[in-house]
Design a protein around this nucleic acid. Sequence first.
DNA 1: CAACTCTACTTTGTCAACAATTCTACAAGG
DNA 2: CCTTGTAGAATTGTTGACAAAGTAGAGTTG
Lengths: 224, 224
Amino acid sequence: MAQGRTIETLVQESTPAIIAGKLRHAIGYGELTPGTRLGEADLAQQLGVSRGPLREAMQRLTQEGLLTSIRNRGLFVASLGEDDVRDIYFARTAVEMAALGRVMAGDNAAAAERLLEPVAEMDRASANHDAAGVGEADISFHEALVELASSPRLSRMHTTLLTQTRMCITALQETYPEPDGRVAEHTEIAETVRAGETGAAHELLQAHMDDAVTRLLSGAPGLL
Amino acid sequence: MAQGRTIETLVQESTPAIIAGKLRHAIGYGELTPGTRLGEADLAQQLGVSRGPLREAMQRLTQEGLLTSIRNRGLFVASLGEDDVRDIYFARTAVEMAALGRVMAGDNAAAAERLLEPVAEMDRASANHDAAGVGEADISFHEALVELASSPRLSRMHTTLLTQTRMCITALQETYPEPDGRVAEHTEIAETVRAGETGAAHELLQAHMDDAVTRLLSGAPGLL
DNA sequence: CAACTCTACTTTGTCAACAATTCTACAAGG
DNA sequence: CCTTGTAGAATTGTTGACAAAGTAGAGTTG
């Protein structure tokens, strides 16, 4: 991302893109909870922009599936039911399995090193009993995995899915279990990558995903 | 989609969504070729809407990656280089392989029937020497495959990828080879699904995708 | 003759006002 | 008492106009 240039790139990204990023963050971290109605006038004033650019940004998020639009009634933060949780992880599995396959066709050692960075961060956060930090490092691990596949389209799709994953995690933060197990799980995946054991790595990742779903759903009897 | 109701649903989709659909179609079918600059005033008048809704629609397509935005200079139809073609098919493979896996965990016979519908259409078009029709049926086959997985997120991601696939096909329509082979290929996949031969189906689909890439790239020495 | 500068034009980015629709509250009737 | 109809208020959808940035061309200068 930030390529240490002498002069920072002049071409700034468009205003709607910036606003969309802020909204995406707010939604992912629970500042805007599912079902919330996004009043244009309020939001615009809050963000210091006019309604025009804000509406453009919201269209982006609608396209991503983070907002649902009802004509003449406004835009709402998408609600996630049990089916949605299952679908999010199903789609994530599809994306990350493909990424894993491509990564393991390349330099396994380098990939493992890269993957162990967020694991170390997770370990650190775990030692500090920082539940949010553990969650964030978890996300970083999977983000790194997909980045390593260097597929722009896979990464783009994954970004949306990760935002929705954050929504799930934020909404059910109490569900977070023993962090030591998570550190071990991720370490194991990284080490399997290093060893080049393709089949095992895929199985571990699949199990990791299935675990997450059952954990989330067992902790969420009602919908989000 | 169309659920034969007595009274059709009253809530119409938002204007930006409609416009985005039209633009997506125009881009997919080559009415707007890669690199084209989209002047707002012209397009708005041409579509019979004002600049506001049009801008909102274009933000959607930008989010999808169909348009690239350069601040203060306008929006351009995304150009597809060789790397993009490879990436499109890599992402499509990820999505469709996952869909295939889920489909084959269900009713294989029903799935095969559904998949053979576009194959029949392809055969018909092939008999009429209708190259475009063959291509469209090809797309329909893969669309049906993903629909059968009934995963909203996978379908959404796939829609974008199919638009980009159409761009490739449209840009290199001359590359289309003997349609008989294509009919056979798709038939084989559908029949393998019916037989429940999971491993074989995945291998066939993978080969099908790889073929498509090599065919597209061999026919496209220059970029699109 | 090439390169630079300045001017005018076109286009995008942003904003504020108007029109249309929906929600809320309240009153009337069965 | 519940349902139905009707105003008012608030919000979204759309349009048009203004300001900023970029582009193209002619003119000038080395």
